[in-house]
C-alpha cells in the first residue's frame, strides 16, 4: 500500500469531539493489535514445540494424534501443482485478451469481467458443491487430487487474471507503439516484449492464487477428500494441510497438539508465500517509479 501525503494539523483549537476521536481510534488500533498478537502468539506458543524435521516428514499415526504430516504436505503440493498448471495458461490467456486485445467498452470483455467479479465472490463451499457434482461425479474423477486441484483452479482464476491484467496495464504504451513501428506482429510483440515486461504482475497473481489455494478448506472436503495416506497418483484422494487441521480439531479427540503444529506450519508457508508476493509487487512498483 502506498503512503499518502500526510497533512499537518494545526487547528486553531482542539475540541472535545477531537479528543474523543483520538482516543477511540487509538483504542481500535490497540484492540485489533492485541487480538491478533494473542492469536499468533497462542499458535506459535503451542505449536513450536511439536514442529521438527520428523514431524514434517513422518506419516500421521493414530488418526493424526501422533506422527507427522509428511503425506499431507505432499498431497497439498500436488493439489497446488494441478491448480496452477490448469489456472495459469487459462488465466494468462484471459488476462492478455482483456488487457491487450479488447477495448473497455467491448461487450464480450465486459461480460467476461462481470462473470469473473461474481466468480471472485462465490463462497468456497459452493465451489466444493460444484466440484463434487462436476469433477467427481459428472466427469467421474471421484474424490481425487485431480478433482481438488481443478476445483481450486476455478476458484483462483479471478485473482490470477486480475493481477496479471494489472501487470499488462502497467507496461508503458511506448512498448506497443515501438513494436508496431518496427512491424512486429502482435504475437511476437506479446511474446518478446509484453510478456517479459508484465512478468511481475503474473508472478504476483500466481503467488496470491497459491496462497488462497493453500488456505482453502471448504472447497476441498468433497473434492480431494480426507485420506491421509501418501498419494500414489493424481487419482488418489489426498488430504490437504488445512483439512488436516480441521479434522484434528473437530473429529479427533486429543488431536489439538498436532493441530497447533500443523496450523503453525500452514501459517509459516503462507507467510513466505505472501511476503514473496508483496516483495515482488513493491520492488516492481519501486522500479517503475524510478525508471
Amino acid at each position: 500500500m502506498a503512503e499518502a501525503a500526510r497533512p499537518t494539523f494545526r487547528p486553531a483549537h482542539t475540541g472535545f469531539t477531537d479528543t474523543i476521536a483520538t482516543v477511540v481510534v487509538w483504542l481500535i488500533a490497540i484492540i485489533v493489535t492485541g487480538v491478533f498478537v494473542w492469536l499468533l502468539s497462542d499458535i506459535i506458543w503451542h505449536g513450536i514445540g511439536q514442529v521438527s524435521w520428523r514431524f514434517l516428514t513422518e506419516a500421521p499415526r493414530n488418526a493424526g494424534r501422533a506422527g507427522g504430516i509428511g503425506p499431507i504436505i505432499v498431497s497439498t503440493l500436488l493439489i497446488l501443482a494441478v491448480c496452477i498448471a490448469v489456472a495459469m495458461p487459462l488465466g494468462v490467456g484471459t488476462a492478455v485478451l482483456l488487457a491487450e486485445f479488447t477495448s473497455s467498452d467491448n461487450l464480450f470483455g465486459r461480460l467476461v469481467r462481470r462473470s469473473l467479479d461474481v466468480l471472485a465472490g462465490v463462497p468456497s463451499i459452493v465451489f466444493g458443491l460444484f466440484g463434487n457434482a462436476f469433477f467427481c461425479v459428472y466427469l467421474g474423477m471421484g474424490f481425487s487430487i485431480l478433482s481438488g486441484g481443478l476445483t481450486l483452479a476455478c476458484m483462483t482464476l479471478p485473482i490470477l487474471i486480475r493481477s496479471t491484467e494489472e501487470g499488462f496495464r502497467a507496461v508503458p504504451d511506448e512498448y506497443r507503439l515501438g513494436a508496431a513501428a518496427l512491424g512486429m506482429s502482435r504475437t511476437s510483440s506479446l511474446i518478446h516484449l509484453l510478456l517479459p515486461a508484465a512478468a511481475p504482475g503474473l508472478l504476483v497473481g500466481m503467488v496470491l492464487g497459491m496462497g488462497r489455494s493453500i488456505a482453502e478448506t471448504a472447497a476441498l472436503i468433497f473434492t480431494s477428500g480426507y485420506v491421509d495416506r501418501m498419494p500414489q497418483s493424481l487419482h488418489d484422494s489426498g488430504r490437504s494441510l488445512s483439512i488436516h487441521i480441521f479434522d484434528l480439531s473437530m473429529n479427533v479427540a486429543g488431536g489439538d497438539a498436532n493441530a497447533y503444529a500443523s496450523a503453525l506450519v500452514l501459517i509459516v508457508i503462507l507467510l513466505i508465500v505472501n511476503s514473496v508476493a508483496s516483495w515482488t509487487s513493491d520492488r516492481w512498483l519501486h522500479k517503475r517509479i524510478i525508471s
Binding site: P89, L90, G91, V92, G93, T94, V96, L97, L98, F101, F108, G109, L111, V112, S115, L116, V118, L119, V122, V126, F127, L129, F130, A133, F134, Y138, C154, L157, I161, S185, R186, T187, S188, L190
Partner: peptide, 29 residues
C-alpha cells in the same frame, strides 16, 4: 499475420472458458 489471428482466437477461447465457469457453476447447482 496468420499467427495473430490464431493467437486472438486462442485467447478468446481462454476468456470464454474463464467467463463460462460461473455459468457452469450456476447450471450445475
Amino acid at each position: 499475420s496468420r499467427s495473430d489471428i490464431f493467437l486472438i482466437w486462442a485467447l478468446r477461447c481462454c476468456a470464454a472458458i474463464a467467463g463460462a465457469i460461473v455459468l457452469l457453476i450456476g447450471a450445475f447447482l
